[in-house]
Design a protein around this nucleic acid. Structure first.
Lengths: 197, 197
DNA sequence: GAAAGATTTGACTGATCGGTCAACTCTGGT
DNA sequence: ACCAGAGTTGACCGATCAGTCAAATCTTTC
């Protein structure tokens, strides 16, 4: 019960927000689950919205760790994307076991919720989604360089398509409570990129 | 101020839910905007969740009208899908003008929210999404019959992919406040189906 | 060990939440 | 003219909401 209170609040908030929206989780829920009083929460976070932003940032850190690992250049660029999809599905499956329901995409769902509030929150959501897309974009660029993807493919636009596909599959996975649906992304992405391998 | 109170409540609720989640809209918001008292709302709807369900059903009716129109068989099957995408984008654009923000997909977003509550709501969400997918599925089947789509394409699975893509693009459109993003779906769908035309 | 700051407590506020209720008005049918 | 039931009112409930605050308690530093 020492200096890690902030982290504990954050971790608990993240757990509660999955499977529900931020709006459905109250600060009191968070405090109760974290074994902490309201004052402590507001000592570390100026508002509930700020807490939501911190959760998004935290999820982004986790996702970035997965991205860094998946996009290591020991395999061909497009295989890195496959590897990421698989890690992503593993993540969703783990969450499903922990929370009993399939969550939506930990970034996309939250981002689209806070984005609706406008202002700094929208900017943050944009930053996160762009950051994510960056990984796809560079991999696609590199694949182009190797001739795995046709030269007329625009990496930025293609990355948008890939990200959209994954978001949509994650949404359907949530609605059907079946994380495995997202695995469809692997073959779809090759088709989307008109990839030769 | 006569028999149409129920419809007015429904219409107002639908307007308020766009650009926000159902959880973010209170029954009092709805009543205030509809010029109606709480008792009236609860005269027509047994609970807030039921109101959410009715909004979803209402949106599904609207979407089905668009689907029926777009999927009329006066053009080739895959062209019907294009036509639907365009109508869908027009719908999003209109909403953006009305509400000042780009809404998410009126079906997908709501469906995934109510689905998290489990029970009848989840079943309803499933019904709606399956119903939607049915239109894609039949069109793809027909395209297969004409040889526009390879024989090894499974229409049901392909419809899932197409729907996922649209949902994802709609989510990104909301985050970026740009409905036009969804138009990317037209070319993507051809690629996804390995279509010859 | 004392001063200084970071952290934690727990009671509190005013607003708002979803939902209820008994009483009232309006309406169509006979 | 009367009735029955649909629709409406507006006050109300207990719970919960996000957020506040002064006082108490730890930690750190010197």
């Amino acid at each position: 019960m020492a200096r890690d209170t902030r982290e504990r609040i954050l971790a608990v908030a993240r757990d509660l927000v999955h499977g529900a929206s931020l709006a459905e989780v109250s600060t009191e829920d968070v405090c109760r689950a974290a074994g902490v009083h309201k004052g402590s929460l507001y000592h570390f976070f100026p508002s509930k919205e700020a807490l939501g932003g911190a959760v998004l940032e935290h999820n982004w850190d986790m996702m970035r760790a997965v991205l860094e690992e998946s996009f290591a250049d020991d395999v061909a660029p497009l295989d890195r994307i496959d590897r990421f999809v698989e890690s992503f599905v593993r993540m969703l499956t783990l969450m499903r076991e922990r929370f009993g329901v399939t969550p939506g995409c930990p970034l996309g769902t939250l981002a689209s919720e806070v984005a609706a509030h406008g202002g700094e929150a929208r900017a943050q959501a944009g930053r996160v989604l762009s950051g994510w897309m960056g990984y796809f974009s560079t991999a696609i660029s590199e694949a182009k360089g190797r001739g795995d993807v046709p030269a007329d493919v625009d990496p930025g636009e293609a990355a948008t398509r890939v990200l959209a596909l994954m978001q949509g599959l994650a949404l359907l996975a949530k609605a059907h409570d079946d994380p495995g649906l997202v695995l469809l992304a692997r073959s779809d992405i090759r088709l989307l990129l008109r990839a030769s391998r």
